[in-house]
Design a protein around this nucleic acid. Structure first.
Length: 205
DNA sequence: TAGGCCATCTGGTCCT
DNA sequence: AGGACCAGATGGCCTA
């Protein structure tokens, strides 16, 4: 794409710039046409004087233009860095989330939704464990898999709908079958938390 | 080839 | 005034 910068006094044939995206990175401005090639007859001293003034103004505008351009480039640079920081944070988030067997990198939106649901699952686990520690006799129906001995088969473990008045099921439930994380054999059984999480995965994703 | 995801640019707005 | 943040536009790459 080429943009023509000609916000100067065009009648003077001075300082008309062409600009391409490539040139942006090099911060170059090209005079499109030399001032002497306007094909006009020689001007009177008064006209020359006026022309000089106009050219001075054009130079000022050219300076303003260059300043603006430099400011834009700096802003672009900052924006780029900002987005890189954001991506680094997303990578850090991915790194603390359980990895998937097929090593598929979660997309940005998937990472955020996954993290949201994962946090929810963990807090549910803590809450239920806390409840159980206070009253061991308390057995929550539908959470039989949350005990001390998770069944590796991961059979009918599921999160009870409305297990608590203080908890709500994750709002981000993407059950898109085409999603890279929709997997069947997710066999990480390191802790109860992870176990409950892994059993939860099919429904949170 | 369409659709999804991503990086980058850009202009506007808000904040310090 | 300058930087941070945001959202829209655009183009490239990849995959079904």
């Amino acid at each position: 794409m080429e943009t023509v910068y000609s916000d100067m006094d065009t009648s003077s044939c001075d300082y008309s710039f062409t600009h391409t995206d490539d040139e942006d990175s090099r911060s170059s401005l090209h005079p499109a046409s030399p001032a002497s090639s306007c094909g006009k007859p020689p001007a009177s001293p008064a006209e020359l004087q006026q022309k000089k003034r106009r050219r001075g103004r054009a130079r000022n505008e050219a300076t303003v233009h260059v300043v603006k351009k430099n400011r834009r480039m700096k802003a672009n640079d900052r924006e780029r860095n900002r987005m890189h920081n954001l991506n680094d944070a997303l990578d850090a988030l991915r790194s603390v989330l359980p990895a998937f067997p097929d090593d598929t990198k979660l997309t940005k939106i998937e990472t955020l939704r996954f993290a949201h649901n994962y946090i929810w699952a963990l807090s549910e686990t803590i809450r239920i464990a806390d409840q159980k520690s206070r009253d061991p006799a308390l057995l929550l129906p539908g959470l039989s898999c949350m005990g001390d001995a998770p069944s590796p088969g991961g059979d009918s473990c599921s999160w009870p709908s409305g297990a608590s008045s203080s908890s709500s099921s994750p709002s981000y439930s993407n059950s898109d079958p085409g999603s890279p994380a929709a997997m069947d054999d997710f066999g990480y059984l390191q802790t109860d938390v992870v176990y409950s999480y892994t059993n939860f995965v099919p429904s949170i994703y």
